[in-house]
Computed example of a mutant assay.
Amino acid sequence: MTDRVIDAHHHIWRQADLPWLQGPTVPRIFGPYDSIKRDYPIEEFLEDIDGTGVVASVYVQTNWAPGRAAEEVAWVEGEAERTGWPHAIVGFVDFLSDNAAAVIAAEAGCPRMRGVRQQLHWHENKLYRFAQRPDICDDPVFRHNLGRIAEHGWLFELQLFAGQMASGARLAGALPEIVFVLEHAGMLEDRSRAGHALWREGMKRLADQPNVHTKLSGLGTFLHRLDQQHLADVIGETIDIFGPERCLWGSNFPIEKMWTDYASLLDATRAAIPESHRAAVLAQNAVRLYRLPPEVLAPADGPTSKLEGR
């Protein structure tokens, strides 16, 4: 074990709660996924991180069935009470819905709630498309309801493709009181010269907004493998654009577990981050953004949970 690390993006789940993990396997953005069509409990996550230096984590929503967003947050809160993990929760709210305020109020009852993700990524390629339309960031109803999270001090996890980044920058500019965290370093899916240029231009637009940060996560999504050079290139450029003080890391497990183990992914990430930036990117920024207790970075032998010693 070397540096202490905060995993700012991972999942746990019960298969029965997730409609997308049931029924026949269909084409998805991250490739064949039969290996994760099962429960992924917090106990398995703790086994995956054992010996890696990870000392705290942030759960990110996993698209439970419609109408169950508050139930998802409550379940994760219960798992955290039982085991000590995760340390922060990013839930779901449909900000286009008439009941957005009620869902926010329900989720606010969970003390580990720190933010919301509503996936807005839209692509001309239907395989990559999640949102129903590309311009939700500019929707006045969406913006009004999103603004409600400011009173709770929550951040918003922004998931977009390069072609949507200009609208994402407008959204962040319109809501300066909210912290935005761009998912997966902007989801670079087109590695052609033109595709890379579009991504880089969009990333610069987002970085021009001081309330936008980004996660170095999900970098195997479109390759379906751990590619050291690709990871190093994206991490290097992203840190160059946003600065190390606005970048943080997440494993995206168990999605990335389909093609790599946890230690290999974290080792590759460490190697791609300049040593002088590692403490900020791998831990300190996540502690600040998700308002984690500073003592999680105190020296320790490894991850601890309430399950130890039972």
Rank of each mutant, 00 (worst) to 15 (best):
T221P: 04
D190W: 01
A286G: 07
N285H: 02
T221V: 13
E79I: 05
W85D: 09
R114P: 03
R291D: 11
H87D: 14
A80P: 02
G220E: 04
L160W: 11
L231N: 02
V281A: 05
A101Y: 07
A101F: 08
A105F: 00
R148K: 08
D50H: 14
V296Q: 05
F45T: 03
D190M: 04
E177H: 00
F222C: 08
V287Q: 03
G53I: 09
V296M: 06
G195N: 10
S192K: 01
A197H: 06
D240N: 10
Y128A: 10
H152Q: 05
I42A: 08
V234F: 07
W85L: 15
R191N: 02
V90K: 00
E124M: 11
V26W: 14
G109V: 06
G236S: 09
E295Q: 09
F45K: 00
W259F: 15
R200Q: 14
A172P: 07
V296N: 07
V296S: 04
T62F: 11
A69D: 15
A56P: 02
R114S: 12
V103Y: 12
D139M: 10
S217T: 14
G84S: 02
H144Y: 07
R82F: 05
K306W: 10
P254L: 03
D48Y: 11
H184A: 08
V26R: 11
S217W: 13
D240Y: 00
R191K: 01
P19I: 01
A169W: 06
V103F: 09
V26Y: 13
G243C: 01
D17G: 03
P24G: 13
L160T: 04
W154I: 00
W154A: 01
I255A: 05
D94C: 09
F30S: 13
P32A: 15
A108Q: 12
